[in-house]
Design a binder for these strands. Structure first.
Lengths: 290, 290
DNA sequence: CCATGCCATCAGAATATCAGATGAGGTCGA
DNA sequence: TCGACCTCATCTGATATTCTGATGGCATGG
């Protein structure tokens, strides 16, 4: 049984058609047909029900499908294991929340790439859901996300503990005052942002619901908007320390129970970490204790 | 990365030479050389240190080796999963202790193959160590062996509980009398027999050590030897019930603590059981309760 | 110092894979 | 109803890969 046949099978099953699979695999449809037929002959079972609409998996195909993906993943892991001699090298692709990247990671990244010049570091940012999705899809080796994360396929390890603060324009002296504004809006980073739900829950406990939202793509824009009195936001408190100490926004402390949030590092349980990743994690731990 | 290249690599590593691997793979040496070279090029690392003596694994080869076997096993499992539609079919190869086969299995085998005519049943007998070895090597889907078995790769499930008895010639009225014979010998089935060590321990507790051994290949020969007064043996008590009730051997009961032995069914934890095996296990369970 | 065993390399034959054209069958819309 | 447009199957010839068997280098051991 050829691994490439299996990969072809997988693409056909996933895309629901041989022609579509051919396009994805950069080949022609006749080729895909041949590979599938060969696989079917080798196994002695029919894998697809062909129809005008495309190809649908037979029960035998359903049974084979998980193996197709597992073989693919295993071959990929074998490749990396053979290449990885323990010295960090190659491309390390990790994900992070925007805020974590800004607050915790940025000072570490420079020293990491300096310590390991053989590594090409790729950092992608996004929401917790996006990051988890990409880690599961093996697009990322791991990611810093808003904890806790409980997923059977993921390994989750506490990385940072943040104190969140509610930010408002500096004209609002207290949290209560900030919430009394009639035109109060939530200023959030993006649709699925981890802190948005938390902020809404927090406000709901104080009787504030149904607020309008403002969505900005960068932290700077958000802080600018808050400074201008457009609304409030929730953010790690240290983040506004250096840049915004001029007093352009005001950070209102929250009760400890609401303020604490764990940033965890997640990675696939079944994916062996590259040496580059191990070195990165060590780097993060070292930076923490310093 | 081609799975066949990986299999070739595995054979070379295991046999320590390309020529030898070529012989095992039914091909010629130049071909093996080419496949290994291609694999090395694809990975970008050297996998073997070549010398006049053969080929030895480099560190990268060492890292790749476990994946070669895993990919092979996974492909094999994929094959069986796709073919196995839940109806017992194909070849079921299991192992058993000689005594278990004679005592417990033989009545079950006929009814099993009758109930599942699509299955070719292969039963191999041997010692516990041999069976465990073969299960680990995937030569057997599972085996009935002398418990307990604790191995991280094996799943072990109690199957039968036997009462062992010490057998002697019928002229010996008691166990103590049987042990007093000056020319006492142990009659055992084969070198690694599970019951041999147990018998020696049992005798040692009674102060009898250093006995000579007689080794016979079949149960009938052993019972015959015991009947003829050549020595003693240890065996499940029910085994001598029907055939030897004529009184040609005498079964001496043992204290419960020494007599009880669990026969367990073991199989590889990471190997999905075929439908034929599942049906067989169900058959055994049913036969037990009857 | 020749026989033997090891691996690397090469060349030609056998085989597999590829792209593209075509055909069969159906759906959809004019 | 017809034709455009899907689907997958099949065929063909060009291309690429894989196989075999022969050769050569090199070290070891009789």
């Amino acid at each position: 049984m050829d691994a490439r046949d299996l990969a072809t099978f997988e693409a056909v099953a996933r895309l629901g058609g041989m022609g579509r699979a051919a396009r994805e695999l950069n080949t022609v449809q006749s080729n895909v047909t041949q590979r599938v037929r060969r696989l079917e002959e080798a196994l002695g079972v029919s894998l697809f029900e062909r129809s005008r609409a495309g190809a649908r998996l037979t029960p035998a195909g359903e049974r084979l499908m998980p193996y197709a993906t597992r073989v693919d993943a295993l071959l990929d892991e074998a490749l990396r294991a053979a290449r990885d001699d323990g010295a960090p090298r190659g491309t390390l692709t990790i994900g992070s929340l925007e805020t974590t990247a800004a607050l915790r990671l940025s000072p570490l990244l420079a020293s990491y790439v300096q310590a390991h010049p053989g590594v090409d570091l790729v950092l992608r940012t996004g929401t917790t859901e996006e990051m988890v999705e990409r880690v599961l899809g093996r697009e990322l080796e791991g990611a810093f996300v808003c904890g806790p994360v409980a997923h059977p396929l993921l390994l989750s390890k506490p990385a940072f503990s943040e104190e969140l603060a509610l930010l408002s324009a500096p004209t609002e002296a207290t949290l209560a005052a900030a919430l009394r504004r009639p035109d109060l809006r939530l200023v959030i980073l993006r649709a699925g942002c981890s802190y948005r739900q938390r902020l809404e829950e927090l406000l709901a406990r104080r009787g504030v619901v149904g607020l309008r939202r403002l969505e900005f793509g960068t932290l700077e824009a958000i802080l600018g908007a808050v400074a201008a009195g457009l609304g409030i936001t929730l953010m790690p408190r240290p983040l506004i320390g250096p840049t915004w100490r001029g007093g352009q926004v005001r950070a209102h402390r929250l009760p400890a129970a609401e303020a604490r949030v764990q940033t965890v590092f997640v990675r696939r349980r079944d994916m062996l970490p590259s040496s580059a990743l191990l070195a990165f994690q060590k780097h993060v731990t070292k930076g923490q204790t310093k």
